[in-house]
Simulated assay, not measured.
Amino acid sequence: MIHDSRVSLARSARLSATILLTAALAGCSVFSMFSGPSKPQPAELQPVTALVSARQSWVTRVGNINFPAEMGVSGSTVAVASGDGTVALLDAASGRDIWRVALNTGIAAGAGNDGKVVAVVTRANEVVALQDGRELWRQKLGAQAFTAPFVAGSRVFVLAADRSVNAFDGQTGRKLWTQQRPNEPLVLRQSGVMLAVGDTLVVGLSGRLAGLNPTNGSIRWEAPIASPRGINDVERLVDLVGRVSRQGDVVCARAFQTGIGCVNAARGAVLWTKPANGVQGIDGDDRALFGTEADGTVNAWKRTDGERLWSTDKLRFRSLTAPLVVGRSIAMGDFAGFIHLLSREDGSLLNRLPTDGSAIASSPVLVGNTLVVLTQNGGVYGFQPQ
């Protein structure tokens, strides 16, 4: 429970930008409950000496991004989608279109990509699957979705805002199964967690990671990373947010403004959890995890037990994305369209890459040797980092 009213108000103000009120299976609607205090001033950027090289190799465009976008990576390709319904599969080495489709309907979540099928979710709550530049099928969902579909094993999996997980045949769109969990009154309008670990579909459901049988949707295990606390629905909101860090069978994830933790996804066993106040996902390597707190402080934790390795406040209040491990750096975007490259060893600034000046709309991704970045104005940039 949060007793300090100032802390509670600040948390509620941050939540109001990303929470949706869910009406069971009927769908969701946006609400804003709090005006909140004035916004803190972002840290001023200091001059940087490039200690790692990174050059822009290409740029292309899709439409504006007005939803919690994700880029779908498979092999040498990256799938992107814009708010106006443009969906494109790009060659990440050159930035050239492999194909591009205009769906002429707004996009709410996407894009998932297995190298053949690309899937998105529309604002009309329809899952749409595309291949070779043509629409394969579309199916209606019972609620909105804000997490990109996960495409794997000739199936398309969709995590909806009513805590349901739906599986569709990748070629026909036939619904294979639905797993419905108890629904909370509030969910985040933010990308959640879905990935495969061996033959298990791992999904974030409220504050838990759950392991599902991808064939029939049965639950194999559940592992809590955070539990609801507080006296009202806002304070009790717990949700896992993407991205996550996977090393072998171990998946580490963040619970929104609550904590981080690691789970052995082969056994469904929680290895450790630690309090943390971030709103974006995490990434890591075999030694450390990296993430940002809600105030923009960047932290590194030991992967084995969650103990703090280092922390830096040079990017406070710059609305950072989730980080991405790239070589000896971690990359993260900010509200002004910069990609910051920080040292994995101590958090020192190694380079800063400009884009088009609009906010970075999705966590950066690495496709082969190309760092791909998506901006709110629809710029898609490819960089070649050291």
Rank of each mutant, 00 (worst) to 15 (best):
P323D: 11
L320Y: 04
L342S: 08
D313R: 15
Q376G: 01
L366S: 13
L374H: 03
T321I: 09
A361V: 08
T375Y: 02
V380R: 02
P364K: 12
R318E: 01
L374A: 08
R308E: 12
A331R: 07
L324S: 03
D305E: 07
Q376P: 01
P364Q: 13
S343H: 02
V373I: 13
I330C: 03
W301E: 08
P323G: 09
L349G: 09
T370P: 06
L374G: 02
I330R: 01
A361R: 02
D313F: 09
D313Y: 09
K314E: 15
F338A: 01
L320E: 01
L324N: 04
L366H: 12
P323Y: 10
K302Y: 13
G337P: 08
Y381N: 03
E307A: 15
L371G: 04
D334S: 05
L350H: 05
R318V: 04
S319K: 12
S363T: 15
P385H: 09
V298R: 08
F317M: 06
F383P: 11
L341P: 06
D313M: 10
D334N: 04
S343A: 03
G382E: 13
G379T: 01
M332G: 07
L374V: 02
R328V: 14
L309F: 04
L309Q: 13
G337N: 04
T355N: 10
F317A: 05
G327N: 11
G333N: 04
S362W: 05
A331I: 13
I360H: 03
E345P: 01
L349S: 10
T312W: 08
G382V: 02
W310A: 11
F335N: 04
S329D: 14
G357W: 05
E307L: 15
R344A: 07
L371H: 11
